[in-house]
């Protein structure tokens, strides 16, 4: 029996020290890029479908792209910061929560990257196809 064992040793949790990254920061790092893309897709599709022909439409589309890309960039930077922070110590000294933060924030990097691609592809369409009725 393991009566004498320290609970931390048994299942690693909870750790000895807090990670210093709040849940909202982590959530934004993970999903910020995706949310920006979702809004860009739905709003872009709606504007393109219902408003093209109006001279202002194409500028709304460009504006949407700028805003969405800014959010993506912020998410990417936040994720990058979280990764840096979580990996500041050598491997053996990191807590499981830091590993978790690193994992989620790396995911955020990928998702933000994909959001960047999808939004940029959409902007390519706006530039090449134009927004004429």
């Amino acid at each position: 029996m393991s009566q004498a064992r320290n609970p931390y040793e048994i299942h690693d949790y909870p750790s000895r020290r807090p990670t210093g990254v709040g849940p909202w920061t982590l959530a934004f790092a993970l999903f910020g890029g995706t949310i920006a893309w979702t809004v860009h897709l739905i709003a872009g599709y709606s504007v393109a479908n219902y408003m093209c022909g109006d001279a202002v439409a194409v500028w709304i589309l460009h504006g949407l792209t700028v805003v969405a890309l800014t959010v993506v960039a912020l998410a990417f930077l936040t994720a990058l910061r979280v990764v840096r922070h979580a990996t500041r110590l050598p491997k053996g000294e990191r807590t499981p929560e830091e590993d978790r933060d690193q994992f989620l924030a790396s995911g955020g990097l990928l998702l933000a990257g994909l959001g960047f691609m999808a939004i940029t592809f959409g902007e390519v369409a706006v530039v090449v196809a134009g927004c004429t009725p």
């Binding site: 990257g113 691609m117 592809f121 390519v124 369409a125 090449v128 196809a129 134009g130």
Partner: peptide
């Protein structure tokens, strides 16, 4: 997994919209 598809897709995206137009 990333560089190759990104490169190809950028070219294809421009081509497809251009041809469509």
């Amino acid at each position: 997994g990333i560089a190759l598809p990104v490169t190809v897709m950028v070219v294809l995206m421009v081509l497809t919209v251009w041809a469509g137009r």
